[in-house]
Design a protein around this nucleic acid. Structure first.
Length: 594
RNA sequence: GUUCCCGUAGCUCAGUUGGAUAGAGCACCGGAUUUCUAAUCCGGCGGUCCCAGGUUCGAAUCCUGGCGGGAACGCCA
């Protein structure tokens, strides 16, 4: 199966022109010095370079184990020999053999001079890449089902997809955010079936989506006892597909009520889609898909249904038409894939959908291949782990979910409480925009909590964890940026790149500046594997390194020493720029202060 | 039953694509604020990297086989 969950089959970015990762700017000179001595190409040496486990051991390391065989010497002796032959120049301050490694120590002053002015100049573009060349990449994400509440379990696709859209944009691609609304299918038959019995438009207008969810849950409860109800639902959906006026009218009504609610949630998260076509849009395109499948002799009849037999590829059989003639999810996805290719001419098409649907996407891709779509292998399922309760699955059918809106509102309420308490403790006035600030912090906590870990892992929903503001959290990053913003305001003028870089020569500064310089690497790595957590990780590292410096009482940014203040301000500004840009990629708002 | 994913500290997770003494946060214990925001920082405690083999100079990482958890496997999406 292509693109098995959790593994990156190949680097899809590698087909585009890659700018050199920033770290290799530092690694290159070291590799160039080593290459002639070990008689290997510079690129090979560079690939072997590692980062030592502790900062006191330098910033770059070359392991000598592999040379031991060819040179028939002990690795430490080789390291010793190599180290003695390399002259420090430019970015490299010294080279020392440490056991079987040749370690290089970067020159803090030179690194600062290289990184910080560039960061200042780049501003909001700092950390960005220009590998995309304006090429389109579609990102199918969020895609909630109409007539069901927007639950916390939809958060995963929504925030991962949103982050990928932002990251693609930062890398110079033209992302197309697609919300493939689940607004078609037998589920509507179910809703229409129960609506016949007890639907009440007045109540719908009043209670909105909560009422629809209630009906849906009730139908499913009834179906448990009376399985024939599913046949009633299928008949209703067929009616809808055949264009029955009343069914269509109700469908449109349900759709609107749902969209109103979804829009509120998207507004809270600051998300806008480029394409909000639901599944229903592809209704008219499906006959053509079925016709083509038939002409290509890909269809077989099986138990009354129409299928594509994929047993030869270990992918089972893929249903494209039910026995009653109505269509399925796969049929619609085949149609939408072609439509997207025509509309957007994507170089890559991502589907941010739970890992449980791996088979569906494998089938879809295989069918597209059999249909001789040359772009079939540019489609990639970006799977993620399930969100569940500690002791049970979340179940929309049973109404056993947590509405996302509740979570965001709770988080904002808690943030407000923290702001108010903080203001009281320091006997300061409560800010006028406390609600806006609290909202941003709450969203930051909830979103970052989902993006900080690798997406394949299952997530257990836990209020304490979602609402945590301490440690490795969104508010921690926001707070670090806010503290710097406050210093910048106090500083009273824009930071200057014309500073004495020698004043930024300390080990803490060097580690921090190297981390800042790795922002583009985190973006690139994140895009290669569609994994926003690489960015989250880098931001935490930067914030942590800065906080350590900041908390040292003998290390002040603002002081009487003008030259020192200017230099440290430039560094602090770079930190804030990196944090703000990275948070922006992740779709996390940055409050003006905290 | 078959296939896919996951398994690292009490809990939640990183681990630079096979390298040095496996790292963070939470929780717990102890510290730090006359000075840039304590949503912070510092220290301590905490490990059979699920198990067993194999490959390798070298394995949490790769291979094989188990065990445990989750998911998918036809008319839902």
């Amino acid at each position: 199966m292509r693109g098995s969950v959790g593994k990156v089959p190949y680097c899809w970015l590698s087909c585009f022109s890659i700018t050199e990762p920033t770290m290799s700017r530092f690694a290159r000179p070291f590799a160039e010095a080593l290459a002639p001595l070990v008689e290997l190409p510079v690129a090979d040496v560079e690939k072997q370079l590692e980062t030592p486990p502790k900062p006191g051991m330098g910033q770059l390391a070359f392991p000598c184990f592999q040379l031991a065989k060819t040179l028939r010497k002990a690795p430490p002796a080789i390291a010793e020999d190599l180290a003695s032959k390399i002259q420090p120049t430019g970015l490299i301050k010294k080279v020392i053999a440490t056991g079987p490694y040749v370690n290089a120590y970067l020159d803090g002053e030179a690194v600062a001079r290289e990184v910080l002015p560039a960061a200042l100049e780049a501003g909001e573009c700092f950390g960005s890449l220009s590998i995309g060349g304006g090429r389109a990449v579609t990102v199918d994400y969020s895609s909630p089902n109409i007539a069901k509440s927007f639950g916390i379990h939809h958060l995963r696709s929504t925030v991962i997809g949103h982050a990928l859209v932002n990251m693609l944009k930062a890398a110079g691609f033209q992302p197309v955010g697609i919300n493939h609304l689940g607004d078609w299918g037998t589920q509507f038959g179910q809703l229409l079936a129960i609506w016949d019995e007890k639907g009440d438009e007045a109540e719908l207008n009043e209670r909105g989506i909560a009422y629809l969810l209630e009906l849906y849950v009730e139908f499913n409860a009834a179906k448990e006892k009376n399985p024939e109800l599913q046949d009633v639902a299928r008949a209703k959906f067929r009616l809808l597909e055949n264009g029955d006026a009343e069914a269509r009218r109700l469908w449109a009504l349900f759709r609107k009520v749902s969209l109103d609610e979804f829009e509120r949630v998207y507004a809270m998260l600051g998300i806008q889609f480029d394409d909000m076509r639901g599944e229903s849009f592809y209704e008219g395109l499906m006959p053509a898909v079925l016709t083509e499948l038939k002409e290509r002799n890909l269809l077989t009849e099986s138990k009354g249904a129409t299928v594509v037999d994929l047993e030869a590829f270990d992918l089972g059989t893929a249903l494209v038409r039910k026995a009653d003639g109505s269509t399925l999810y796969l049929t619609r996805d085949l149609a939408s894939a072609g439509y997207r290719k025509e509309s957007y001419d994507f170089v890559r098409s991502l589907y941010v959908v739970g890992g449980s649907q791996a088979l569906h996407f494998a089938q879809m891709t295989k069918v597209l291949e059999l249909m001789e779509r040359p772009w079939f292998d540019t489609i990639e399922h970006v799977p993620f782990g399930l969100m569940r309760f500690k002791d049970r699955k979340m179940s929309t059918r049973k109404g056993d979910i947590v509405p996302l809106r509740d979570v965001l509102e709770q988080a904002a309420a808690l943030a407000k409480q923290t702001i108010v308490k903080g203001a009281e403790d320091k006997s300061r006035p409560i800010p006028d925009d406390v609600d806006e600030l609290a909202h941003r912090i709450g969203v930051g906590a909830v979103v970052f909590n989902d993006l900080k870990n690798r997406r394949v892992r299952d997530v257990v929903f836990d209020w304490d964890e979602v609402l945590a503001f301490d440690g490795e959290t969104g508010p921690y990053l926001q707070y670090t940026a806010a503290r710097i913003a406050s210093m910048e305001a106090r500083y009273g003028k824009p930071p200057s790149a014309d500073v004495d870089f020698h004043l930024l020569d300390g080990p803490g500064e060097l580690a921090l500046i190297v981390a800042i310089s790795e922002m583009p690497d985190s973006l690139q790595r994140g895009l290669e594997s569609c994994e926003p957590s690489y960015v989250s990780d880098k931001l935490l590292e930067i914030a942590s390194l800065f906080s350590t410096l900041y908390s040292n009482r003998s290390w002040k940014v603002l002081s009487e020493d003008v030259a020192l203040t200017d230099a440290r301000m430039l560094l602090a500004h770079g930190v804030r720029q990196a944090l703000c840009n990275g948070l922006g990629w992740l779709g996390i708002p940055v409050p003006a202060r905290m």
